[in-house]
Amino acid sequence: MNINATLIGQSISFFLFVWFCMKFVWPPLMVALNERKKNIADGLAAAERGRQEHELAERHAKDVIREAKDEAANIIAQAQKRSSEIVEEAKNEAKAEGDRLITAANAEIDQEINRAKEALRGQVVSIAVAGASRVLKQEIDEKAHNELLEDLVAQI
């Protein structure tokens, strides 16, 4: 219970311990604490940013999907239009082709008719000549009347 030099010893050790604490214990702990505090704050900020970006991306995705749908509808409409066009074209072409074929057939038929007419005409002449010659065999000299006959043939 006596006051003695312990007082001085205690004061000196007190200063030594405070110095040690200030030098080697407190700063590294505070650095770690502050750094963690900063990390947590950064993490929270990043999470918030990520959430916003996600929202933005979702909205963007919705836009893209809507555009794609519109485009698809457009394409389908165009395709339908085009297909009906093609059918129409095919119809027209077929009709034209049919018409062309009919005209060609008609022309050929006309030609055949003309040819047959020519052949018939030649045969009629020779038959007429043969008939006439049989009738007139006796009376008409072939040589004398040849000129007349040829004239007749040319007339027919």
């Binding site: 006596n2 030099a5 312990t6 205690q10």
Partner: peptide, 25 residues
Amino acid sequence: MGFWAFNLDTLGFSVVLAVIFFFLF
């Protein structure tokens, strides 16, 4: 003994305890 004497138990225990504390921290 007067003023120039040391309480060895007080000094010893306080220093040992402080050393334990600083060792851990």
